[in-house]
Nucleic acid binder design. Structure first.
Length: 110
DNA sequence: TCACTGACGGGGC
DNA sequence: CGCCCCGCCAGTG
C-alpha cells in the first residue's frame, strides 16, 4: 500500500451518486497517465483498505463493467449501478458519455 | 529470489 | 476498422 493507492481511493470516494469515472481518468488526474492499470489493481484491493469505496462507479474507457467478477457476486456491480439509475446492457453502460464524471471537477469546486 | 499475473489504455500496423 | 504490443508495478506462489 503506497500513497498512489490512497490517492486513488480518495478520488473514487468523490465520485457523485449516479455518475461514473474511468480508470484512465483517475490515473491521468494523479499524474500517472500510463498507470491506469494500477488504478484497476487498486480497486481490486480496495476492500482491504475501506469497504465503503464505491468501486462500482469506476469502469473502463468504453463504459464496460470489466471489474464485475471481483465483487461478491458477478451481478452485484450491475445491480448497484442500476440502483443509481444506470441502464446496462451486455455489461455496457448506456448513454455513457452523459453519465461520466471527471476528477478535474474537484479543482473547480475550490 | 524470480516469474507471472492482471478492474487499463494508447499507439503501431 | 481490429489486433497486437508495451509501460505500468503490487501481490502471489
Amino acid at each position: 500500500m503506497n500513497d498512489f493507492y490512497l490517492r486513488v481511493y480518495e478520488v473514487v470516494q468523490q465520485i457523485p451518486y449516479g455518475k461514473v469515472c474511468t480508470y484512465g481518468d483517475i490515473a491521468a488526474f494523479l499524474g500517472a497517465k500510463s498507470s491506469s492499470r494500477l488504478v484497476g489493481y487498486a480497486m481490486n484491493y480496495a476492500h482491504h483498505y475501506d469497504s465503503n469505496i464505491p468501486a462500482h462507479r469506476v469502469v473502463n474507457r468504453n463504459g464496460m463493467l470489466t471489474g464485475k467478477f471481483h465483487f461478491e457476486t458477478p451481478t452485484l456491480m450491475q445491480q448497484l449501478l442500476e440502483n443509481e439509475g444506470f441502464i446496462i446492457e451486455k455489461d455496457s453502460i448506456q448513454d455513457f458519455d452523459n453519465k461520466r464524471w471527471y476528477p478535474d471537477s474537484l479543482l473547480e469546486e475550490i
